[in-house]
């Protein structure tokens, strides 16, 4: 290797913007959720209060006395990201009503209150708080970043872990093909609460994701976004493949990208020539056991493919 490449260093000559998601955070190399946090701050801007329950992104961004956030930020315990965001919103409205000049923010429409939880904190542990937030109608955008298991504590399955994935609490073995449930449909749960705007997005398409964050923040009342963000450690793949795997999950239909308004699907990111899920599975160590050529493994892949095909038909995913 030539030494001039070893010496190449532009560190002191770079043009940095005023980033609201700062470097120095302790996320693993190639972290998908860290990209989601970057896009959320870029779309929402600095006039934002983030409420974040325990999870990877909380742990990596706020080890005392450091913070990676340029926005206002509050960490709360695992189950109540949505509750704390609800309280902030209610307090803000009360202050504003009593004394409209009390706060710097002139109009409540200028302030963004966003709760950002992982799949475990949202779909499992925090779902009661989230349900309450949506049912009471708080003006909060809830964003679930989905890395398909409890990664921070060591890859335990969550209700977003896909069928067939080996995790530490759904290990593959002689009698097990790994996790034996499909992903819980959080978008329908949110829509059935009467949430006006519900959407899914993937970190492989930041433009689309940021547009959805901006659109959601324009709407009064609760909003729910589900953003797909791969984890190199928990899924066991090379850190450089994060964007590729997020895109493949969309192209295989495992993670459909769509919007729902007032309970109806209003736009679907159509897929032409949808790829078989096998292409996505074989790139990840957590599905390695499904490629041993045995019959139960083949059946498991078939079962996951059938689930995807049925959802694709329901959503009208195929172009």
């Amino acid at each position: 290797m030539s030494s001039d490449l070893q010496d190449q260093d532009f560190t002191d000559e770079l043009e940095h913007d005023e980033e609201l998601w700062n470097p120095g955070h302790r996320a693993c190399a190639g972290c998908g959720p860290a990209l989601a946090m970057k896009y959320i701050t870029e779309a929402a801007g600095e006039n934002t209060i983030i409420s974040q329950p325990t999870g990877c992104m909380e742990v990596v961004s706020t080890p005392y006395p450091e913070s990676s956030w340029g926005t206002s930020y509050i960490h709360n315990i695992f189950e109540n990201g949505a509750s704390v965001a609800s309280g902030i919103e209610a307090a803000y409205k009360a202050f504003d009503r009593r004394d409209p000049d009390h706060l710097d923010v002139q109009d409540s429409d200028d302030l963004n209150i966003i709760a950002v939880g992982g799949d475990g904190a949202t779909a499992d542990i925090g779902i009661r708080a989230l349900s309450g937030m949506m049912e009471r109608g708080h003006d909060v955008l809830y964003i679930m970043y989905d890395n398909e298991a409890y990664m921070n504590t060591g890859v335990q399955r969550s209700s977003q872990t896909p069928f067939g994935a080996s995790t530490t609490t759904s290990p593959a073995g002689d009698e097990s093909i790994g996790n034996d449930t499909n992903k819980k449909d959080m978008t329908s749960i949110a829509a059935d609460h009467g949430v006006e705007y519900v959407a899914t997005a993937s970190i492989s398409n930041p433009h689309d994701f940021k547009q959805k964050v901006e659109k959601a923040l324009e709407i009064d009342g609760p909003k729910f976004l589900h953003v797909y963000s791969p984890c190199p450690v928990g899924w066991s793949y090379e850190s450089s493949k994060t964007v590729e795997l997020a895109e493949l999950a969309v192209e295989t239909g495992l993670f459909p990208v769509f919007e729902m308004e007032d309970g109806e699907i209003t736009s679907v990111n159509k897929i032409s020539d949808r790829k078989p899920v096998r292409e996505w599975l074989e790139k990840q160590g957590r599905f390695k056991h499904l490629f041993d050529g045995e019959e139960p493994s083949e059946e498991a892949i078939e079962e996951l493919q059938t689930w995807i095909d049925e959802r694709a038909e329901d959503l009208g995913l195929d172009a």
Partner: peptide
Amino acid sequence: PDQAAKPVEGEDYYGFDLDYCKGC
């Protein structure tokens, strides 16, 4: 994910912030 790839000042190419790049 680490805000480490940025335009090089006054040039028409990008460079890397080696203070923060984790090498993913």
